[in-house]
């Protein structure tokens, strides 16, 4: 499967969002993504900076200085992957504490909206009406 979060971040860095036509210009700031093992130890840290409709990503192995984050989003690798695939949504996970957010929640929420896919089962409402009506 590879690193799905890495792939999604790479796509975002190219200016492409899974859900938005373009990355909204606001809010701006840096989110640190802490990827943990099941035991809770942080094994990887990504930094994503949203600014004026662009996303800058600092990879975990980068030599560049770490930016000061405005927010932290922390959860395990499996949960990140499910978010990337759209099998989980950010808000309910946040509410049931299955992921932890520190700092600027609005910024993390925006990142979640542009970075993660919608549910794979989602329908365009017109398609849904047609399917329900039958052939």
């Amino acid at each position: 499967m590879g690193d799905q979060l890495a792939d999604a971040l790479q796509t975002l860095e190219r200016g492409k969002s899974r859900t938005f036509k373009s990355i909204p210009p606001e809010p701006t700031g840096t989110v640190r993504l802490d990827v943990t093992e099941s035991a809770g130890t942080v094994v990887k840290q990504w930094f994503v900076t949203l600014e004026s409709g662009t996303a800058r990503v600092r990879r975990p192995d980068s030599e560049t200085p770490r930016p000061e984050p405005d927010a932290v989003l922390r959860t395990d690798k499996d949960t990140f992957d499910r978010l990337v695939r759209g099998e989980e949504r950010f808000v309910p996970l946040f509410f049931r504490n299955a992921l932890v957010v520190e700092g600027h929640l609005g910024l993390v929420h925006m990142l979640a909206m542009v970075l993660f896919a919608g549910p794979p089962t989602g329908h365009h409402p017109r398609d849904f009406v047609h399917e329900e009506a039958g052939p």
Binding site: R18, T19, R89, G118, P119, G122
Partner: peptide, 24 residues
């Protein structure tokens, strides 16, 4: 901020849609 951005049948979300109800 919470305007819909994707298709989610459970939440009846569509791009551009304004939410109905938010619960914690």
């Amino acid at each position: 901020t919470l305007q819909g951005s994707t298709f989610d049948d459970f939440r009846e979300e569509e791009p551009g849609k304004i939410l109905h109800e938010f619960r914690y």
